[in-house]
Write a protein that binds this DNA or RNA. Structure first.
Lengths: 145, 145
DNA sequence: CTCCGTGCAAAGGCTTTGCACACTC
DNA sequence: GAGTGTGCAAAGCCTTTGCACGGAG
């Protein structure tokens, strides 16, 4: 996957008459540098490392702004986990380990059999946007023994 | 579906040396009377109607206790929605038509292919408790042609 | 120079916890 | 009577909001 061009996104946002502040630029950079998902507090921690004066509420406001601009997607995985990621990265879903908290990213095609089954049995055309599947990851699941 | 026998469940809990208080009995009754899922605060409201002195923290403690006893299942749907439901009702999920609002209840086995795929590809043991799948029902979905 | 965006602090919504009293068994 | 469960109040966690200042355009 090509690393999204941060400056290109900033350019589009500027065209929408949004003000580009150092905070907004920094959050967007972090999102672009991150492979996959990231939480608000993780972004906050990264910003804090070099700019300790930045406030967590600003992070939330910037994320809300980026979401409304269609730049990032927000997924509430339940159990207090909310993750953000660049919309440009394409459709995928998350496996959440309820024991160790690991989050595994899976492609959208994993849902093809389910979609097919729902259509065959119920004539239901599923439009699953972002799914969080809870369970136990390979390290945490009980082994037959 | 047969209405779960509240007294039968209470009997089992008594056997487990749990104390049956009026609060616990009332919460269980409400769960048995409810078709489908219910939230902690909805239970609280119902209890309050006749027993205003009961505290919300008690509801949470009772639900936690019922969950650990395997009597109810708890599902965090995200966005602050947490629902509880009698485990005896059997696992099911909901298809929600975004156009006409129809809700179709589907058996848990619909997810078997997905579970199998997740285990094969990622070693992930999915424990999908309650899934709400949005989309379009048979009457509302676009037909080819 | 005009407003929008930010820092700060406080509050909000849901849930959990510490404590002493009350009640079940 | 022994020990668990409850009511109350406070705190915890994540997130949002009100306000005045500061910086972007």
């Amino acid at each position: 996957m090509v690393k999204p061009d941060c400056e290109k996104i900033l350019g589009k946002l500027r065209e929408q008459r949004s003000r580009i502040t150092p905070q907004r630029r920094r959050v967007l950079e972090i999102l672009c540098e991150t492979d996959g998902h990231i939480s608000a507090s993780e972004i906050y921690d990264q910003v804090q490392a070099h700019n300790p004066q930045v406030n967590l509420s600003t992070i939330y406001r910037i994320l809300e702004w980026l979401e409304s601009a269609g730049v990032v997607t927000r997924s509430d995985l339940g159990e207090g986990h909310v993750i953000y990621e660049l919309a440009a990265r394409g459709m995928h879903h998350h496996l959440v380990c309820d024991r160790c908290g690991t989050i595994i990213e899976v492609g959208d095609d994993i849902l093809d059999p389910l979609r097919k089954l729902l259509l065959e049995r119920y004539g239901f055309q599923a439009e699953i946007k972002h799914l969080a599947i809870h369970g136990l990851c390979d390290s945490c699941r009980p082994r037959g023994g």
